[in-house]
Amino acid sequence: MSLLAKAKKGNNQAFVKLLQDEKVKLYKMAYIYMKNENDALDVVQETVARAYANIQSIKEEQYFATWLMKILINTALEILRKNQKVLPMQERLPEQGQIYSYDEKLDLLHAIEQLDEKYKTVILLKYYRDLQTKEIADLLDCPEGTVKTNVHRGIGQLKKYLNKGGELYGEQY
């Protein structure tokens, strides 16, 4: 009997084993979206709770990682949308040691953080998670052409950002 089948029957240890291979990837992806450890951990925790509650909806074990990542992305975006309604009292200061000088090599992760969510998501899934265009389209429930367009536009925005010293200039996509 597969781990997924055991987890569907209520075996908590099987569910934990399924999560073991994914926990680091989940945290890293959550951190990229949330930009701080506490919020990233909250997203991972909420993702695990939602996955546990909906384990019956997944059909095949080979899609578990993709299914879990979809839950994480949706959870992170939902929390970010809720947090946008709260206006910060002051601008967030760079963490100690984080200096984005034009003379130094720009941090690619910082550049990716500047992208619109739709571009950031496809760039991370394609180049960070090494997913194929079809897999990303399935994960995001959108046409493959849209994924290809968003990857192309996201790369274009990254190039402009990196070439212009840290600001997104140029055409609006």
Score class of each variant (00 low, 15 high):
149 T>D: 06
81 R>E: 14
155 I>T: 09
52 Y>V: 00
45 Q>V: 01
61 E>D: 01
155 I>R: 10
118 K>E: 13
95 E>A: 14
67 W>Y: 10
142 C>G: 00
120 K>Y: 08
94 P>R: 05
117 E>S: 15
99 I>T: 11
68 L>S: 06
78 E>W: 09
87 L>K: 05
87 L>T: 10
62 Q>I: 13
140 L>E: 11
89 M>Q: 09
66 T>D: 06
110 H>F: 15
54 N>K: 13
121 T>L: 07
86 V>A: 05
111 A>P: 12
42 D>N: 04
144 E>T: 14
100 Y>S: 06
61 E>W: 04
50 R>W: 01
149 T>E: 12
125 L>H: 14
78 E>L: 08
100 Y>R: 03
105 K>N: 01
107 D>H: 08
106 L>G: 01
30 A>E: 12
130 D>H: 15
75 T>R: 04
116 D>M: 11
99 I>A: 11
52 Y>E: 02
127 Y>D: 02
139 L>P: 12
136 I>N: 00
85 K>P: 00
84 Q>D: 01
41 L>T: 07
155 I>H: 02
130 D>Y: 13
63 Y>I: 04
153 R>D: 04
89 M>Y: 09
119 Y>T: 04
71 I>T: 05
86 V>H: 08
154 G>E: 09
128 Y>Q: 12
31 Y>F: 15
97 G>M: 03
37 E>R: 14
75 T>P: 00
140 L>P: 06
66 T>I: 14
91 E>F: 08
99 I>F: 10
108 L>F: 15
126 K>M: 12
118 K>G: 03
54 N>M: 03
100 Y>T: 02
72 L>H: 01
138 D>Y: 05
101 S>W: 01
135 E>D: 14
112 I>A: 04
99 I>S: 06
123 I>P: 08
111 A>E: 10
60 E>N: 05
89 M>E: 12
101 S>V: 02
131 L>H: 13
58 I>K: 01
49 A>G: 00
127 Y>F: 15
27 Y>P: 00
109 L>Q: 10
81 R>K: 15
121 T>F: 07
134 K>S: 09
91 E>Q: 11
110 H>W: 15
34 M>R: 07
32 I>C: 10
128 Y>M: 11
69 M>W: 00
67 W>R: 05
150 N>E: 12
87 L>C: 01
36 N>Y: 13
62 Q>Y: 02
126 K>I: 08
132 Q>I: 12
61 E>K: 06
37 E>V: 12
145 G>Y: 05
60 E>L: 06
93 L>N: 05
44 V>G: 04
153 R>C: 02
59 K>T: 06
90 Q>W: 06
28 K>Q: 09
33 Y>M: 11
111 A>R: 10
63 Y>C: 04
121 T>E: 07
112 I>T: 06
54 N>V: 03
51 A>R: 01
62 Q>W: 00
92 R>S: 06
137 A>F: 12
61 E>T: 01
147 V>A: 11
76 A>W: 08
